[in-house]
Structure formats: structure tokens, C-alpha cells
Computed example of a mutant assay.
Amino acid sequence: MAADDIAGLIREAIPDAVVEITDLAGDGDHYAAKVISESFRGLSRVRQHQAVYAALGGRMGGVLHALQLTTAVPT
């Protein structure tokens, strides 16, 4: 799965998100994602991550093998 596709899916589900994707291994399977969104304010880290995983629509473990995820609210 391409980094642009991952970012697009996240932005589609979380329109105000600032998304930064890094290919960790150069293999198109292992990525790090940093997602910043006002919609995360007041949510636990677990809920924030669940929102991102929901945006990926079940692709984790399939076409997207691994995603190191960092979430935050804007400062």
C-alpha cells in the first residue's frame, strides 16, 4: 500500500487531520504515521488510535502490514 493511499484514507475519514507518513523499511509494508487532529481533543490515546485504524477500513494486517502510529491534538 502506498504512503499517499494511507494518508488519503486518513484524511477522508478525519478531514482536519495533518498526516505525515514515513516508510520505515523501504518495502511499502512498514510505515510510521503521525496524525494531528482537533477531533482527537478529549479522547484517550486508545480512542485516537481507534479512529485512525477505523479510517483504514480493515486494511491493517492485510495490504498494510505494520503501522507505527502517533496521534496528537494541535498545539
Rank of each mutant, 00 (worst) to 15 (best):
D16V: 02
D16R: 06
Q48W: 08
I21W: 00
S44A: 00
R45T: 14
V46L: 14
Q48L: 05
G26C: 08
R41F: 01
A7G: 04
G26N: 11
D23E: 10
G61W: 02
F40W: 10
G62I: 00
L69F: 10
D16N: 09
L43G: 07
A51V: 11
L43F: 10
A2T: 13
A72R: 12
G58M: 01
M1W: 01
G57W: 07
L67K: 08
M1H: 13
H49S: 11
D5M: 01
D29Y: 05
T70N: 07
A25H: 08
A7L: 03
L67D: 06
A66Y: 12
L67E: 06
A33H: 05
G58A: 01
V52G: 08
Y31D: 11
V35G: 02
P74T: 12
S44L: 02
S44F: 10
A66W: 08
M60L: 14
G8L: 00
M1K: 06
I36K: 01
R47L: 12
A25F: 09
A13D: 08
V19P: 08
D4V: 09
S44G: 10
A32H: 00
V18F: 09
R41A: 15
I6R: 10
V63W: 05
D16I: 06
R41H: 07
A3K: 14
T75F: 10
E12Q: 11
D23I: 01
E20D: 14
A3R: 11
Q68E: 14
I10E: 04
L64I: 15
I14L: 15
G8V: 03
V35W: 12
M1R: 08
M60P: 06
A51L: 15
G26R: 05
A54E: 14
L69Y: 00
A17C: 10
R47I: 02
S39F: 02
V63F: 02
H49E: 13
Q50N: 08
I6E: 04
L43R: 12
G57Y: 10
V63K: 11
S44I: 07
E20V: 13
S37P: 03
T71W: 09
L69A: 01
A54W: 08
R59P: 09
E12C: 07
K34E: 14
E38K: 13
Y53Q: 12
S37C: 06
D4H: 09
I14A: 02
L67T: 06
G57R: 15
T70D: 06
L24G: 00
D16F: 04
D29E: 15
V18K: 13
P15Q: 05
E38P: 05
L43S: 04
G58Y: 04
I14Y: 05
A51Y: 02
A54C: 01
V46R: 10
T75S: 14
V19F: 08
M1G: 14
D27L: 11
T75P: 15
Q48H: 03
A33R: 07
R41I: 04
S39V: 13
T71R: 01
G58N: 07
L64D: 04
A7H: 10
L24R: 11
R41Q: 07
R11Y: 04
R59G: 08
A32R: 12
T75A: 13
E20N: 13
A72W: 00
G26M: 08
V19R: 03
D29K: 15
P15H: 02
R45N: 11
G28A: 06
M60T: 03
G26Q: 06
G8R: 00
G62H: 14
I21S: 05
A13R: 14
A54I: 09
L24D: 00
P74H: 12
G8Q: 09
D29Q: 15
E12L: 03
M1T: 13
